[in-house]
Amino acid sequence: MKRWVVIGVAVAATATLLVVYFKAFGTDPHAVPFMLTGKKAPPFKIKRLDTGEVVDSSAYAGQPMVLNFWSTWCGPCKQEHPVLNWAAQKYQGRAVFFGIVFESEEDATKRWLQEHGEGFPQLFDPKSTVAVDYGVSGVPETYFIDKSGTIVSKYPYPIDPRTMEARLAEIL
């Protein structure tokens, strides 16, 4: 009897460890959890850098949207910027693209855009309020929102053309 109790406890402990191991296997231990997938995208009203007009996200209801959060001091943002410019041109009329610049100075951002090109509208988030509402945990991060306004996915790395097309296919 006592022997079976010991075996039972050992099996239960091993099974628990195996469940924990396989559940976490292959995941990035440094990744910050993101819980807004499948939830409605938070609304925002912030200034567009080139025209100065205030952009209200509710004006784009019913259209798929790509939001790219970035900063001027972020090296990987520079690396992915041509991909975003390319995708914004290719999918023009099918999805709305916005860059949201936060943790940056307005003048420095304008200089950055003059140097690297501005293929799609860039919005300025001076107090990072929109970034906080969207649960941003670093830069760059790209959000894919479908026409019902639901966040379908977030890509928290510099995006490449193949990933961009795959993610866009999910919201178009």
Binding site: S71, W73, S104, E105, D107, A108, R111
Partner: peptide, 12 residues
């Protein structure tokens, strides 16, 4: 000097 840094903010 060119602004390539995360600017410190005092907060509200």
């Amino acid at each position: 000097a060119q602004g390539d840094y995360a600017p410190g903010r005092a907060g509200t």
